[in-house]
């Protein structure tokens, strides 16, 4: 990492890469240090993360219950399979102009885009998870006379948790991407807009400093969700291992 940074430093210092296009890392970091003391950076970050968090939460609240319902009914799944297949690949960014028309250029637009984009990974993972219920566990539960609701809570949901965790990890990075896109294209307040403005205004060092901020943010979010996923997956996998050993 340090080696890569020092190579970058030397090629930019010697103008092998023009510093107007890519300033030396030390300059980027000193700009970053200065910015860390400014209120704009923090309010931008709060705006971006606000869109990310609220969007992800809304998508979760819609997709997971829906996924459970659809996943536990063969007929519903069959009915909705094709519409889902068609809606999912619509790049959510294609809806940018539409949401601008309907919601304007504010926070609501950003929120809508984030929710729309996060819905699909979560929905599909939940459906997979519910459908992947171990039939032996299900029969066992049934033989003990557990009712429909109990089976759902005690057998189906725990089995689906790892899938939902994976869906959350994917959706989290999609959410950040869409939040930044909305800020970039529509101009909702946040890091994306500031990066764009810095680029257009020729403040190259500031632009890269902000890209570093968004990168670190993304990295932190990734790590948290990957850790959650690994924790539930670990449990899941160890259960599966036992089954195989049997």
């Amino acid at each position: 990492m340090l080696a890569a940074l020092s190579v970058l430093e030397s090629v930019t210092r010697t103008e092998l890469i023009s510093s107007r296009h890519f300033p030396p890392p030390t300059k980027i970091f000193s700009t970053l240090a200065r910015e860390l003391g400014s209120a704009t950076l923090w309010s931008d970050l709060a705006n971006t993360l606000g869109g990310w968090a609220l969007g992800l939460a809304l998508a979760f609240a819609i997709a997971v219950p829906l996924g459970i319902v659809v996943g536990s009914s063969a007929l519903l799944h069959r009915l909705l399979a094709l519409p889902i297949e068609f809606l999912r690949p619509i790049p959510s960014v294609a809806l940018v102009p539409l949401v601008v028309l309907v919601y304007g250029t504010g926070f609501q637009s950003k929120l809508f885009l984030v929710v729309f984009a996060c819905l699909w990974p979560l929905l599909i993972q939940t459906i997979y998870g519910v459908q992947d219920t171990d039939p032996v566990a299900m029969d066992t539960a049934r033989s003990f006379g557990l009712g429909r609701t109990e089976r759902l809570v005690l057998v189906t949901l725990p089995g689906a948790v790892p899938y939902i965790a994976t869906g959350l990890r994917i959706s989290s990075s999609v959410a950040l991407m869409l939040a930044v896109t909305a800020e970039l294209v529509i101009g909702s307040a946040g890091l994306g807009r500031s990066i764009n403005l810095a680029g257009e205004g020729g403040a190259v060092e500031l632009m890269y400093a902000l890209i570093v901020v968004i990168g670190v943010t993304g990295w932190a979010l990734n790590s948290v969700f990957a850790r959650i996923e690994r924790r539930v997956l670990h449990w899941h996998v160890s259960v599966r291992r036992l089954e195989h050993a049997r």
Partner: peptide
């Protein structure tokens, strides 16, 4: 997030 790289 890749779109953030577009200005760069």
């Amino acid at each position: 997030p890749p779109p953030a790289l577009i200005p760069a």
